[in-house]
Amino acid sequence: MTDAIGRVQQIQQTLTQLSAPTVTAPAVKTASTSASATAFADALAATASGGTINNPGVTGADVTAAAQKYLGVPYVFGGEDSTGMDCSGLVQRVFADLGIDVPRVVQDQMKIGTEVPSLAEAKPGDLLVSRGGDHIAIYLGDNKLLHAPRPGKDVQIVDVYMSESEIDTIRRIVPADVAPQSTALAGVSGLTGASGLTGLSGLTGLAGGLGGLTGMTDPSSASLSDLIAAAQSALVKGRNA
């Protein structure tokens, strides 16, 4: 009888753990922590070079989406809003919309963030600087860029027209992406595989008693008392088998 009570308590503890909403694994380096570290490092690099990142959660995808809102805006030398803008005014405006302060002119913008070694390694949201530091564009990926080209033209998307040797520098101001937060228990696909129940494999009635719970992807859909009752019933059947 004492042994049976002990097994019931073990089942109760296991089911309590399974029904908990989230379980965070401490001291485990995940993709999210790595991405956060990258974002922090990029923020430091940009700040040290004259940029201020007030929103470190911004990604390259956010940059490209913000930039495309200005398609069709006419080129105006010295302009920096939707009535007209030049290449560096466009870049400054896009990042300002995302809570990121960058310098106004290309010669300063080409020094912030971190340098990307080659066009092959460029990611959406990176900045391409050419013409000896006189022109800057936003890389969109898939060999496309968005820029304010010159007087008489509008902000537009074109193929990357410069060769590797014609690019003075490629700057990454924000991370290309940020991994989603994860937990040690992302979901429960079924109670039959729970490691906490492996010690009960000798109870021949356990599978039948828990048969109604097999495949339950969300333990919270049933009350804890229901789970415990089912486990206790299985235990009794196992002892009588």
Rank of each mutant, 00 (worst) to 15 (best):
residue 83 T to E: 09
residue 85 M to T: 03
residue 36 S to G: 14
residue 144 K to P: 03
residue 118 S to T: 15
residue 42 D to L: 15
residue 84 G to K: 14
residue 63 V to R: 08
residue 144 K to W: 12
residue 41 A to V: 10
residue 86 D to M: 06
residue 103 P to I: 12
residue 115 E to H: 00
residue 105 V to F: 05
residue 42 D to P: 00
residue 92 Q to N: 13
residue 105 V to L: 10
residue 119 L to D: 00
residue 35 A to F: 05
residue 54 N to Y: 13
residue 56 P to A: 11
residue 45 A to S: 14
residue 141 G to L: 09
residue 75 Y to S: 08
residue 97 D to R: 01
residue 40 F to L: 14
residue 69 K to C: 00
residue 58 V to N: 07
residue 145 L to A: 05
residue 108 D to S: 12
residue 63 V to T: 08
residue 61 A to Y: 10
residue 65 A to I: 10
residue 152 G to Q: 03
residue 126 D to C: 04
residue 88 S to V: 08
residue 63 V to Y: 12
residue 52 T to D: 12
residue 104 R to S: 05
residue 40 F to S: 15
residue 122 A to F: 01
residue 99 G to R: 03
residue 51 G to F: 10
residue 132 G to I: 08
residue 83 T to L: 02
residue 78 G to P: 08
residue 87 C to P: 02
residue 64 T to A: 13
residue 41 A to W: 00
residue 71 L to R: 04
residue 39 A to C: 05
residue 132 G to T: 06
residue 64 T to H: 10
residue 53 I to F: 10
residue 48 A to I: 04
residue 50 G to Q: 09
residue 126 D to R: 05
residue 39 A to H: 05
residue 136 I to E: 01
residue 85 M to L: 14
residue 74 P to V: 09
residue 62 D to P: 02
residue 75 Y to E: 12
residue 76 V to S: 08
residue 136 I to L: 09
residue 99 G to E: 06
residue 91 V to K: 01
residue 78 G to E: 08
residue 84 G to D: 09
residue 52 T to S: 12
residue 85 M to S: 04
residue 59 T to A: 10
residue 106 V to A: 11
residue 135 H to F: 10
residue 90 L to T: 07
residue 65 A to S: 15
residue 105 V to A: 07
residue 52 T to L: 15
residue 91 V to S: 04
residue 102 V to P: 06
residue 51 G to Y: 11
residue 118 S to Y: 03
residue 73 V to E: 05
residue 109 Q to V: 01
residue 47 T to E: 14
residue 62 D to N: 14
residue 123 K to Y: 03
residue 40 F to D: 09
residue 69 K to D: 14
residue 113 G to I: 02
residue 64 T to F: 12
residue 119 L to K: 13
residue 67 A to G: 08
residue 127 L to F: 04
residue 143 N to C: 03
